[in-house]
Design a protein around this nucleic acid. Structure first.
Lengths: 127, 127
DNA sequence: TACACTATTGATAACGAATCTCATTACCGC
DNA sequence: GCGGTAATGAGATTCGTTATCAATAGTGTA
């Protein structure tokens, strides 16, 4: 049985309020700074749940996992500023198709793919 | 001044001999098993050098970095079996172009991208 | 070839992210 | 309310990676 707790909501809200990708650690820090007494382990659990449910995207950078709230149940990719973390969701049907083709071409089944584009956003480019 | 040591060569050779992506830890283990007295830190340093020089590709999975020897100075992506680690290098000019376009479209500069396709190779699919 | 300089090595400590443990808490159907 | 039990949280633990630093060994010079 799955229960609703204020902690899960807090994590979901904090994630939604964040710009770009954030780490579990910094999200936990932000929540504690805001006066919450939420535990680190709970933040990790909540984030894993969100990611599993498709309500959050995750990617790995520098050996840590970063998370971001995203449109539920829609497959998409990200354009991420490596300076400030600003993120733009991008559709890439052509890439989806390419990934599927290249996999079957080599006899691979059950293709998944990781496609992310990093760069400097307009704001960070100009500085 | 950069020096040539047998340790660097050992790491390079071990990486070349490996099928698919391997972790720094397992590469170190393999070298020790083969009778080498190479240190773990040295393996990490050598792998970082190889990756930096473009002689090896790296990707992150489950919070650890995996490495693989690859054709020097050629930009390409990988089709990786998530069961046995077998890897196929794939060219993806269309994706290169798409990544560049999508970045400039949103005003992003200096675009990099991560594109990897995971799946089950023919051998692992049939079991 | 011998020497000196210093990049490199390696054992280990330190670090940080993530997970596990388990007693306590509090959600939720009844 | 009440009781069963999922969820929590503080801290310990695991694991990958990096930093430290004395000892070693590669390399240009004489």
């Amino acid at each position: 049985m799955k229960r609703n707790t204020w902690q899960r909501e807090a994590v979901r809200d904090a994630l939604t309020d964040s710009e770009g990708f954030v780490s579990a650690q910094s999200l936990h820090g932000a929540l504690r700074d805001a006066g919450s007494s939420i535990g680190l382990a709970t933040v990790y659990r909540a984030l894993a749940d969100l990611a599993g449910a498709g309500d959050a995207d995750s990617l790995q950078q520098d050996g840590e996992s970063l998370f971001r709230a995203c449109t539920p149940d829609s497959h998409h990719h990200h354009l991420i500023c490596r300076e400030c973390g600003t993120t733009v969701e991008i559709k890439a049907d052509a890439v989806e198709q390419w990934a599927k083709n290249v996999a079957t071409e080599h006899g691979f089944t059950q293709p998944h793919h990781i496609v992310d584009v990093f760069g400097l956003c307009p704001a960070c480019s100009s500085t």
